[in-house]
Design a protein around this nucleic acid. Structure first.
Length: 301
DNA sequence: ACCGTCAAATGGCTTC
DNA sequence: GAAGCCATTTGACGGT
């Protein structure tokens, strides 16, 4: 059995040290929000879809409550830098094309940030004519701080409630939809890494089994070469430990156990009935490929 | 300029 | 019907 898997290295776990320090986004931080987010509720309602305005209307309290559960830190947007690792300044480089606008913060110059405000894409569908039908999807890249912030939240919970979503969106000057999409993509990445790790583990397991298989085949060849007239004694000797390690109810139980019992039983050879047409060496030749899967990996012959 | 990679965004499907 | 999942598309960026 040969499996050819080409997989990358196991992903390094996300280091907690890269995460912002824990805090809440409760009350005291709302000033920060106001600093960075000159996007008022009404403005946001204009930009975003109606669902969002409902969320806002339904309760500041609920939002606060949700925020309390979030690993929300002091607003990362108080920091001056908004350029991400690739040098794209999300908060400055948003083109104004009729669908996007820049809301300028009223905070001091050192804290100035330009918050990109784009309309919900869902709403844009009806505005395609503006671009002659050829709407170009504008894609912003999240800043380091935004990503770190979201990452911290993701560590706490990989899914979001409505309140958590809107709270995060408010904090990060993003649309709830963007937060939602980020979490979806993040879950996808997590799953992908998990799949890669699983594949890697299976690959190693497979290699171990292949080694075991080759080893057993060598032993079979040696036994064949020994020219014993009928090597059942040797087989019984080799199989003597199997009955204790076979997993109960496993799929290989029936085959292997019957094989073992058949081999172990005295009297006329059961070979001809169990394995008609097989070489004269006995059942071990046939059942052998199954055996490695049923034995303890550390078992030695 | 081209290519590969990353990640945001989209649309379809499934689940509850 | 809303939300999540998944495959895919798309845009931005870095490396060559």
């Amino acid at each position: 059995m040969e499996l050819e898997l080409s997989l990358g290295d196991l992903p390094a776990p996300v280091k907690a040290s890269t995460m912002p320090a824990p805090a809440t986004c409760q009350g005291e931080d709302h000033d920060d929000l106001a600093l960075g987010l000159r996007v008022t509720a009404t403005q946001r309602a204009d930009q975003d879809n109606q669902r969002i305005s409902i969320e806002t209307a339904e309760g500041e309290e609920d939002s606060d409550e949700a925020c309390r559960e979030l690993p929300v830190r002091a607003s990362p947007f108080r920091q001056a830098s908004s350029a991400n690792s690739r040098g794209f300044d999300v908060n400055a480089a948003v083109p104004v094309d009729g669908r996007a606008s820049i809301v300028r913060s009223l905070s001091p110059p050192s804290m100035h940030m330009e918050v990109p405000v784009t309309q919900g894409v869902d709403e844009e569908a009806s505005e395609d004519e503006d671009n002659g039908g050829g709407r170009v999807r504008k894609k912003l890249r999240l800043s380091k701080e935004q990503s770190a912030f979201l990452e911290g939240s993701f560590k706490e919970h990989s899914t979001l409630t409505l309140e958590q979503k809107s709270c995060l969106a408010n904090r990060l000057s993003l649309r709830p939809r963007q937060v939602e999409v980020w979490f979806q993509n993040r879950r996808a990445r997590t799953k992908l890494k998990q799949t890669e790790a699983d594949c890697e583990r299976l690959k190693r397991c497979c290699e171990a089994l292949a080694r075991e298989n080759r080893k057993l085949q060598r032993e079979v060849a040696e036994l064949r070469a020994s020219r014993a007239p009928y090597p059942l004694y040797n087989l019984n000797h080799h199989l003597s430990g199997f009955s204790t390690v076979l997993p109960a109810g496993s799929s290989c139980d029936a085959t292997t156990r019957s094989t073992v019992s058949a081999v172990s039983s005295p009297g006329p050879s059961p070979v001809s009935t169990l394995f008609p047409g097989r070489p004269h060496f006995g059942p071990f030749t046939v059942s052998h490929p199954v055996l490695p899967l049923c034995r303890q990996p550390s078992a030695t012959l």
